[in-house]
Simulated assay, not measured.
Amino acid sequence: MHTVLVVVHAVSGTAGLLLALPVLLAPKRRGRHSLLGRVYAVAAAGLSLSSFGLFAFDPARLWGLALLGALTLGWLVGGLWFARRRPRVMGGRGWRIWHLNLMGSTVIAFVTGFAVQTTGGSLVAWFAPTVVGSLLIARTTGREVARQRRIVVAAGR
C-alpha cells in the first residue's frame, strides 16, 4: 500500500507542477482554463489525499507533508467552490479574487513540496515558495481589482 501511495503522490505532484503554469496562463474563460483546471484539481486532490496516507506510515517524520496536504486540500475545495458558485462578493465579480488567491495557494503548496523534497528539507525550501508566490498572488490580485473597477466604471455603476 505504501508503494501505491508513493506512486499516486509522485504522479499527482508531477502532473500538478506541469499543469500549474498552463492553467495560470490560459485565458480565464470556459474552455482551456476550465479543462486544464479540472485536471489540475484532480492532481491536487490526489496529492493531498495521498499525503494523508503516507503520513499514517511515519507520522513523526511526515507531519509537514500532512499539514501541507491539509492546507492544499482546503485551498483547493475553497477555490473550486468560488469558481462553481460565483457568489456576489465585492460588487459582483469578487469571487474571481478569492478563486485566484486560493488556487494560487495550491500552486505554492506544489512548489513548496517539490522544493522541500529536492533539497532534503531545507528551511529555505519551506518558506521561499510562500514568499515569492504570495508576492505574485498579491500583484495579480491588484491587477484583478483594478480590472474590476474599470468594468464597474464602464458599466456606469
Rank of each mutant, 00 (worst) to 15 (best):
M1A: 15
H2Y: 14
T3D: 15
T3A: 15
T3Y: 12
V4Q: 09
V6H: 02
V8F: 05
H9S: 03
S12D: 02
G13F: 08
L19D: 03
L19E: 03
L19K: 03
P22K: 07
V23S: 02
L25V: 14
K28L: 04
S34K: 14
L35G: 01
G37H: 07
G37N: 06
R38K: 12
V42K: 03
A43R: 03
A44D: 02
A44H: 04
L47D: 00
S48G: 10
S48Q: 03
S48K: 05
S50N: 05
S51L: 10
G53E: 07
G53D: 09
F55H: 14
A56P: 01
D58P: 04
A60F: 11
A66K: 09
A66R: 13
L68T: 04
L71W: 06
G78N: 04
G79A: 05
L80V: 15
F82K: 01
F82V: 07
F82C: 00
A83I: 09
R85F: 00
R86M: 15
V89K: 06
M90G: 09
M90L: 15
G91Y: 08
R93Y: 08
R93Q: 11
R93P: 00
G94N: 11
G94S: 10
W98H: 10
W98C: 05
N101F: 04
M103F: 07
M103R: 02
G104I: 07
T106P: 01
A109Q: 05
F110L: 14
F110M: 10
V111P: 01
T112E: 13
G113T: 06
V116E: 04
V116W: 07
V116I: 15
V116M: 09
G120P: 06
G120M: 11
G120H: 12
G121S: 06
G121T: 09
S122M: 13
S122G: 15
L123I: 15
V124D: 04
A128F: 12
A128Q: 07
A128H: 08
P129M: 09
P129G: 12
T130N: 09
V131R: 03
V132W: 08
S134D: 05
S134H: 06
S134C: 10
L135Q: 02
L136D: 08
L136W: 11
I137V: 12
A138M: 07
A138N: 06
G142E: 05
R143I: 01
R143S: 05
E144N: 03
V145W: 03
A146H: 08
Q148G: 13
R149Q: 10
I151A: 14
V152S: 11
V153S: 08
A154L: 11
G156D: 11
